[in-house]
Simulated assay, not measured.
Amino acid sequence: MSTDYQQAREALGLRLRELRLNAPDGRLTGTALAHRLGWPNSKVSKLELGKQTATSEDLQLWAEACGQPATYQELRARLAGFESHIRSWRRQLVAGHKPVQDAHNDAQARSAVLRAWESSWIVGVLQTPDYARAVLTRSAELHRSPLDIEEAVRSRMRRQALLYDSGRRYHILLWEPVLRSLVCPPSVLVAQLDRLSGVIGMDSVELGIVPLTSSLKVPPGTGFWIYDDRQVVTEVWHAEMWLDDADTLALYLRTWKTLRESAVYGADAVNVINAARRALTSH
C-alpha cells in the first residue's frame, strides 16, 4: 500500500474523529457511535486510525449518526481522491469485469506510447479470446465476482483495434515463464503462442521476451503498464494502483528500461516462443 494512500486514509480517519467529537447534540464516544450504527467498536477505531478503508455507505452512515449529514459529500470526495489511485478489486468488481476492461480500453486509447512489463500472463492487448476467457474466469472465481465473462472478453478484444492505429506504439516485455504458464488449457496456450509470433514484425508493436537464461539486474517483480510517461498501472492481489506522481513514474520507467536490457527481439524472440510451443506439443 502506498505511503500517499495510507496518509490519505489516516487524514480521512482524523476527519471522522473530528465529526464524532463535535456532534451537534454533544460529544460522542466511540462506543456510543458504534452502538448507534450497530457496528463493533473495533470498526470505529480502525476507521479513525486509518487501518480500514471506509465505504461510501460507511461515510454516509457516519455523517448521519454524528448529526452532520451535509458533510457526506466532503467525505465522499476525500475517499474518491485516494480511491482514484488505489482501486480495490472488491469495489471494482461489484459490477463485474466488463467495466474494468472498459476502463483499460479508455486509458490505452488516450495514450500514444505504451510500455508494459508482464511476468505472470500474456498482456490483455495481445490475448486470444480463449486465453482471455480462461484468465478472466479464474480471476472471477478468485474474487467471487459476477461472471460476466463473455462481455469482459468482448471488451478486451475491442482493445486490440488500437494495435492497428498508426499513431500508437506498444513496447511490451514478457518474461519467458509467461509463455509456459498453464493458466489455460495447453491447446489454448499453443494458439496464444502462435498469436504472439504473429505480432512480431507489426509496425505498432515492439515485443521483447526476457529469457529465463538472461541475467537480470532487478528481480522480475509484478507486471505494470506505463502510459505516455504520465501514469503507471500495476496490480496486486487485492487492488489495482493507478499512480501518477513524478518519483513513482521515474522509478517504474527505470525499472522497465533495466528489464529491457535483458530482452531479446525479432528472430531471437520467435525462437524463445517456439521453444515454449514445442515443449507444450511434445507431451
Rank of each mutant, 00 (worst) to 15 (best):
P177H: 07
V178Y: 00
G208K: 02
K217S: 13
T213P: 01
V210C: 02
L163T: 06
R156L: 11
M157S: 08
V205D: 08
V218K: 12
R169L: 11
V233D: 03
I209V: 15
G223K: 01
G198T: 14
E235K: 12
L193S: 05
H171M: 11
I226T: 01
L212V: 13
S181F: 13
G167D: 13
C184Q: 08
V183K: 11
I200D: 10
R159D: 02
H238V: 15
E176F: 03
V178K: 00
P219R: 02
Y170D: 01
A191Q: 05
D165I: 14
I172F: 05
K217F: 14
S187P: 01
P219D: 03
I226Q: 00
I226E: 00
I209H: 01
L179N: 03
R159I: 01
Y170N: 02
V232G: 03
G201A: 13
D203C: 06
P185C: 08
I226H: 01
R168I: 09
R180M: 05
H238W: 14
V236Y: 11
V232Y: 00
V178R: 01
P220M: 09
V210T: 05
K217W: 13
V178P: 02
Y227C: 03
I226R: 02
H171W: 14
L189A: 11
S197N: 11
A191K: 03
P186G: 11
E206Y: 03
R168F: 05
R195P: 00
L216F: 13
S197Y: 06
L207E: 01
L173H: 01
V178F: 01
